[in-house]
C-alpha cells in the first residue's frame, strides 16, 4: 500500500450509494418520528397533564442518560422477548434489524427534540397566548397556528444541529448488521485493503451533506426571519 488510489471509489460507488440512501432514509424517518413524538412529549409537559407528564419526563431522563448504542441493543434483543411474552404462545417475535433501527432512532431522537421544543415553548412571550385568548382562538388553533410555528422557527438552529448529529449517529446501525454509508465503506475497505481512501471518501460525503444542509437552513432563516425589534 504505497500511494493513494481513488479509482477504487469509483468502482465502489454503487454500493456506497445504497449505503448512503439507507443513512438518509433512516435520518429522515427518525427526524419525522422524533419531531412528531417529541412535540407531543413537549406539549404534554407544557400542559402539565397529570401522570402522563411524569411518565414522559422519566422516559426522557432515561433515554438521555443512555448511549444510543445500548438502546439499539436492548431494543433488538429485548423487545422481541417482551412481545413474545405478550403473545399467546410465548415465543419471541423478531421484529428485524431494519424496523428496530427505524423505531429505536425515532424514539431516541424524540427525547432530544422534545427537550428542544419544551424550552422553545417556554421562550414564547406570554402576550402571544393572551392575544390568542382575546381573539377567541381555540387551544388547538393557538398552538397549531401561533405558538408552535414560532417555537419551530426560534429553535430551528438547535433542531438542525441535533439532526446533523442524528445523521452521523445512523452509522451505529452496524451493531444490527445493517449497511449504511460507513458500513458499506468499511466492508469494501476490508475486501480491497483500501481503508484510507474509503474512509476519506466517506468523511467527505458527510462533510458535504452536513455543511450544505447548514447553509440551506441559514439562508432559509434569513429569508423568513422575523427578528428585530419585535415585541
Amino acid at each position: 500500500m504505497n500511494s493513494l488510489d481513488f479509482s477504487i471509489i469509483q468502482q465502489a460507488w454503487p454500493y456506497l450509494w445504497s449505503g448512503l440512501l439507507f443513512s438518509l432514509a433512516l435520518t429522515v424517518a427518525a427526524f419525522l418520528i422524533g419531531m412528531i413524538l417529541g412535540t407531543c412529549f413537549a406539549l404534554v409537559q407544557h400542559f402539565e397533564i397529570p401522570i402522563v407528564s411524569q411518565i414522559v419526563r422519566a422516559y426522557i431522563a432515561l433515554i438521555r442518560s443512555i448511549p444510543l448504542i445500548l438502546v439499539l441493543f436492548w431494543f433488538f434483543f429485548l423487545v422481541p422477548i417482551v412481545l413474545g411474552h405478550l403473545s399467546a404462545n410465548g415465543r419471541p417475535i423478531p421484529i428485524g434489524a431494519t424496523y428496530t433501527a427505524f423505531i429505536t432512532f425515532g424514539l431516541f431522537e424524540a427525547a432530544y427534540y422534545s427537550e428542544i421544543i419544551r424550552v422553545g415553548l417556554r421562550a414564547v412571550n406570554k402576550g402571544q397566548f393572551e392575544a390568542c385568548q382575546a381573539l377567541a382562538l381555540s387551544t388547538y388553533d393557538t398552538y397549531r397556528s401561533v405558538i408552535l410555528p414560532q417555537v419551530i422557527r426560534v429553535a430551528s438552529p438547535i433542531i438542525l444541529s441535533q439532526t446533523i448529529i442524528l445523521f452521523q449517529d445512523t452509522s451505529l446501525v452496524y451493531v444490527l448488521s445493517l449497511t449504511d454509508l460507513v458500513g458499506a465503506a468499511s466492508k469494501l475497505a476490508q475486501l480491497n485493503g483500501r481503508l484510507v481512501e474509503m474512509y476519506l471518501a466517506v468523511a467527505l460525503v458527510y462533510l458535504v451533506i452536513s455543511s450544505v444542509t447548514s447553509q440551506c437552513v441559514a439562508s432559509l432563516r434569513k429569508r423568513y426571519a422575523f427578528t428585530g425589534a419585535h415585541r
Binding site: N125, G127, E130, A131, A134, V146, Q150, R153, F226, R231
Partner: peptide, 12 residues
C-alpha cells in the same frame, strides 16, 4: 376586542 400595551402581534 382587545388591544394590548405591547401590541402582541404574531411575529411569524
Amino acid at each position: 376586542g382587545m388591544v394590548f400595551q405591547s401590541f402582541n402581534l404574531f411575529p411569524h
